[in-house]
Simulated assay, not measured.
Amino acid sequence: PEESDIELTSFHRYPLHAQQPRIVPGGGLQRLVTSKEFPISSTMSGSIIELQPGALREMHWHPNADEWQYYISGQAQMSV
């Protein structure tokens, strides 16, 4: 991911929707924040993914971390 040019106005809040999304393969947009962009969050990353109807997210895994999924609108299936 490209380095963020977002200026933090607070060390405790990150304006994720101010970030330019990147296009994800399979049909969607992603905004991602890690400790690189938001240093106070040293043990957790966050991401908002907007998938188009019928789109698939790439298969991936986290060998040393959990993944939480929240759905804000629409319907989806997740395999574990």
Rank of each mutant, 00 (worst) to 15 (best):
W68Y: 04
V24D: 00
V24G: 04
R22E: 13
Q69V: 12
G27D: 01
Q52S: 12
E3S: 10
D5E: 08
S79F: 03
E3L: 10
I49W: 00
S79T: 09
Q77W: 09
Q30S: 10
Q19T: 07
Q75S: 14
P53G: 10
G74E: 14
T9N: 10
Q69R: 05
P21F: 04
H60C: 04
M59C: 09
A18N: 13
L29R: 15
S42W: 05
V80K: 04
E3Y: 04
A55N: 11
S45V: 05
W61F: 15
D66R: 02
A65N: 12
Y70F: 10
A65S: 11
H60F: 03
S4M: 05
H17S: 07
L8A: 06
L29D: 12
S79K: 06
E67D: 00
W61D: 13
L8H: 06
H62R: 08
R13S: 15
G74T: 12
S41P: 09
G46I: 04
A65M: 07
S73C: 02
L32A: 01
T34C: 09
Q30A: 13
R13K: 14
G27K: 03
E50I: 10
M44C: 08
P53C: 12
H60L: 08
E37A: 15
G27N: 07
Y71T: 15
H62L: 05
I48C: 07
S41T: 10
G54W: 13
V80S: 06
G28L: 04
I49T: 10
T9R: 11
P25F: 01
I40Q: 08
P53A: 14
Q52P: 01
Q69P: 00
P39R: 05
R13T: 13
Q30C: 01
Y71E: 11
E58N: 05
Q20K: 15
Q30T: 11
G74C: 10
R13N: 14
P15A: 06
P1F: 05
W61C: 15
S10R: 15
E7F: 01
S42R: 08
I48T: 10
E2S: 15
E58G: 05
M44H: 04
P53E: 14
W61N: 15
Y71Q: 14
A18Q: 15
N64I: 07
A55G: 09
L56H: 14
V80M: 03
M78W: 01
E67A: 00
M59E: 13
S45G: 14
S79W: 09
P39L: 01
M44S: 02
S45M: 12
L32C: 01
D66F: 06
E3W: 03
L16I: 15
S4R: 03
P25Y: 06
Y14G: 06
G54S: 15
L16H: 06
L51E: 06
A18H: 14
S35I: 01
H12S: 15
M44P: 00
M78C: 07
S79R: 13
A18C: 10
G54N: 15
R57D: 02
A55D: 08
M59D: 06
S4I: 07
H12P: 02
Q20R: 14
R13I: 12
E58K: 11
V33K: 01
I40V: 13
G46E: 01
I6M: 12
A18E: 12
F11N: 14
L56D: 14
L29F: 07
W61P: 03
E67S: 01
Q20F: 01
G74P: 10
Y71F: 11
W61I: 14
I48F: 02
E2V: 11
